[in-house]
Design a protein around this nucleic acid. Structure first.
Lengths: 347, 347
DNA sequence: AAAATTACCGAGAACGTTACCGGTAACGCT
DNA sequence: AGCGTTACCGGTAACGTTCTCGGTAATTTT
């Protein structure tokens, strides 16, 4: 006694109308009598009809799936971004398929492939720490699936795609400035990989702040880390062997700052008395540390919201162009979100 | 100049064979000459053929999508679980669609609906803090999509579905025991909602350890929290107004423990000198705290792996039953994973 | 040498929906 | 009265696979 799942045909038969009409009614399209529409909807509800996304997708060449690629699952910042993405996309009937690149360029490529295979309608991506090229993004563009990059973008990319980031220069600048205002003088910066746009910009902000206040930016004080975990210690080591040790440290982001705090404490260095520490991210977790972490807040959720919005815009633009028979000319957009200071105990 | 995406038909035409054969070759099925198979695969690669998951799913009634429902995106534990799930499922060609319930039963229901609409082949779910019934799981069962619950399960559920958890009793027991061994005497327990199985069991473990060591378990020392954030403070308050304050606290999980540490420090209470704190989860983050958090490690990744494994088993069992014309009789399975102590500075 | 088995392949019907086009009836306009 | 609109609706062909069944030739078995 198996109960076949009801389909559009069953409804059509029982109501003695055509499948076309039922289809139109179901998806709330134009050209259908309110009366019949009501009847269809009621019967559908009654017999527990569920539209097959698969079949619908196949026929309409849309999947109503949006792919999201993030570098790491456990970074709180990305969790908040996804919240914003959902907030925008869910009401529109899109679902999310979330994959992570594990901070590796190679895996990132695979992620793109997976999503393309799934025929997602669009892709939202934040690049991994180690991504140096965006050829894989190009691939997506060639398949005509719109893509927008958020937060972690590539500096020199020529690709005409939308990007949404925070004002990273300003973040670096304000962080450094805050420290200077607090009276710190030898301020160090723990950067990320060279190719990383956020690293470049935040560093630039740091440099500018230092120079405007008459402090040099000796190369000693700028050390890179290649990931969020292991190499933070090495970076810090470089700082601590200097003859003149820094009295404050700006970390590229909060996860790095957390580790810096911990490592300094292990050395018995008091924060912020001996050395102050600043993060950039605005993770909630920073509040729980002892001392709690002063940081630059990034509007993560808003970023997700805006990125999703840009994606839908782009999708619509592509569709419109196609309908009018024109070819769609993709354009680069760079949207910067404002940041703000969260002062806590570590500075 | 639009380039239609190559399909199975294109390959068939160019190789002058039938689509059936191409299909078989592509999906590596039986009954196809190795020679032609090779040719198909090569041509497919050459012209950049991508199989349409939509069409394949429609025809085969499989989506190769597995839904994962977790209570919160930003809890590290779940991030690790997902890693394990991926590890098992990816090689099998499944992709994950991750949704979160925001710790609300209502949203959890919606999540199930979304996944069912997507025609996922299976569902992995960890219940929200506030889920009291599992009727929504029943719904999934009725649609014949297999489901397995991990970590956060319901105590009294009669549903014949697989569950995988850690040995929560043992976790509570070992945590408490560790504290006792360290010489603490008035040990408090911060629990979760009453209906939560992990809370019940860990509490039971706590009680047993206390009693076996001749300590009473006065009701004062057991306080509940309803979420991972706000109400932790209230729970702690109840403990701190006692005439005889506790000298150690076991928290239901690490996120709660983090907050406890912070709140105690704000009151100027030294950890672990005045009060010791223990978590249960094994979050990496615990290492970064000051003092670092002693915790019971849960094999999160393994849990994901095992849960995924059980899911696939169940899927196969259902398929086999169907093929043999029998009806599938679902059975409950409860798999317990072993835990271990991570001793750090907070005790 | 006949029969049975095996290895491989093809035809064609699903799968459940949407897109496209055409048609009818009713209505309003000149 | 004739004509163009509008509001609905239906038929049918996609969409790109997989599945079932059957068929042929080669190979093995008896």
């Amino acid at each position: 006694m198996k109960k076949r799942k009801p389909t559009i045909k069953d409804i059509a038969r029982r109501l003695d109308i055509s499948v076309s009409t039922v289809s139109r009614a179901i998806r709330g399209a134009e050209d259908v009598n309110p009366m019949t529409k009501k009847k269809v909807l009621e019967l559908a509800e009654k017999i527990g009809y569920k539209k097959s996304v698969l079949a619908a997708g196949l026929a309409s060449k849309k999947s109503y799936l949006i792919g999201v690629i993030i570098p790491e699952l456990t970074v709180p910042f990305f969790g908040r971004v996804i919240l914003g993405i959902e907030q925008f996309l869910k009401p529109l009937g899109y679902d999310l398929i979330i994959v992570h690149s594990d901070e590796q360029e190679q895996k990132e490529k695979e992620c793109i492939d997976i999503l393309l295979d799934r025929q997602v309608d669009g892709i939202l991506i934040s690049l991994s720490f180690n991504t140096k090229s965006d050829l894989h993004l190009k691939k997506a563009m060639e398949e005509e699936v719109p893509i927008v990059v958020f937060d972690r973008i590539l500096p020199k990319s020529e690709l005409p795609i939308p990007r949404v980031i925070v004002d990273d220069f300003e973040a670096g600048y304000q962080a450094t400035n805050h420290l200077i205002n607090k009276g710190y003088k030898r301020i160090a910066f723990i950067a990320g990989p060279e190719d990383l746009y956020i690293s470049q910009q935040r560093l630039k902000g740091y440099r500018t702040a230092m120079e405007r206040n008459g402090f040099g930016t000796s190369a000693d004080l700028i050390v890179p880390t290649l990931d969020l975990r292991r190499s933070v210690g090495q970076a810090l080591d470089k700082l601590m062997v200097l003859k003149e040790k820094p009295d404050a440290i700006v970390a590229l982001n909060d996860p790095i700052a957390f580790r810096v705090i911990r490592l300094l404490q292990k050395r018995g260095i008091e924060i912020p008395q001996k050395i102050a520490v600043m993060g950039i991210s605005g993770d909630d977790m920073g509040e729980l540390f002892n001392p709690s972490l002063t940081t630059i807040n990034q509007p993560a959720q808003e970023m997700g919201f805006v990125a999703a919005n840009l994606l839908i815009d782009r999708m619509n633009a592509m569709k419109d162009a196609k309908n009018q028979g024109k070819i769609f000319i993709p354009m680069a957009i760079l949207k910067k979100l404002p940041i703000s200071l969260i002062e806590r105990e570590s500075t």
